[in-house]
């Protein structure tokens, strides 16, 4: 008998603290699967953010460090200077990356830092209980926009792939969605390309994952998946923005 699916080596045998239906777990597994398939778990150094995934190091079986809120790209920059051949990645939520850490991510991209950033866009602040995120949609209700986000008061959603793809140093930029098996397979391919970009030292690689937060959206996981497809994908189109010739 041949096993057709095995527990991902890079994931530790441990229950996660994520809410039922949360897509953080899927994103974790994709990253670890790619590193496992490349045989690079032993070369990887991850940076976990402030947000629900702060304890990602409990689940990912690689060297990891926690960064202060939003500073993961700066921390990764320091690590990559010391270990230029390591497979360094940051894993960040939308509050962490697109709000408090906006300067750090933009400057990492400007410098063409040779690490990967995996960006979990769930359009809300998960850990602190459902406040508005920079990626919250117009009209979306959160605990700090109870009438729905009003652009006249609190601006428009941050479109990170569109912004970062303008920068020369960001050589690989792709937005994927974690809402269906087909999209998850595509997401894995994007993770794999991002690490290949790093392996070949081509520049900064950025993958945005459209994700769900059923608890703070107040939706059952299956409805949350639908909401993602019907609402988020319009504002955050799923596509590859940039891919260097050297990477297939």
């Amino acid at each position: 008998m041949r096993a057709i699916f095995e527990y991902t080596k890079g994931m530790r045998d441990q229950e996660t603290h994520y809410c039922p239906g949360c897509t953080h777990g899927i994103a974790h597994r994709l990253i670890m699967e790619v590193l496992e398939e490349k045989g690079k778990l032993g070369e990887a150094i991850g940076i976990s953010p402030v947000g629900c995934s702060i304890l990602a190091h409990q689940y990912m079986d690689v060297d990891m460090v926690e960064a202060a809120h939003g500073r993961a790209p700066a921390v990764a920059t320091g690590i990559k200077r010391v270990h230029p051949d390591a497979y360094v990645f940051t894993y960040q939520g939308d509050g962490d990356l697109a709000s408090i850490g906006m300067a750090e991510i933009v400057h990492a991209a400007l410098r063409g830092e040779k690490f990967c950033t995996f960006f979990i866009n769930n359009a809300i602040y998960g850990m602190t209980g459902g406040q508005m995120a920079p990626t919250t949609l117009e009209g979306q209700k959160t605990t700090t926009t109870v009438m729905g986000r009003d652009p006249a008061v609190s601006g428009n959603p941050a479109v990170m792939c569109e912004m970062l793809s303008q920068l020369k140093g960001a050589v690989y930029v792709e937005r994927v969605a974690l809402n269906s098996p087909a999209n998850i397979r595509k997401a894995k391919k994007a993770v794999s390309r991002a690490f290949e970009v790093q392996e070949k030292k081509l520049g900064f690689a950025f993958v945005e994952f459209l994700s769900i937060c059923p608890i703070n959206w107040g939706l059952a996981p299956s409805d949350a998946m639908k909401w993602l497809a019907e609402n988020m994908m319009e504002v955050f189109p799923v596509k590859q923005f940039k891919n260097p010739l050297e990477v297939k």
């Binding site: 150094i45 960064a67 700066a74 320091g78 690590i79 200077r81 010391v82």
Partner: peptide, 9 residues
Amino acid sequence: NMAYGASAA
């Protein structure tokens, strides 16, 4: 924070 990363490394 870069110093933090480099020192942790």
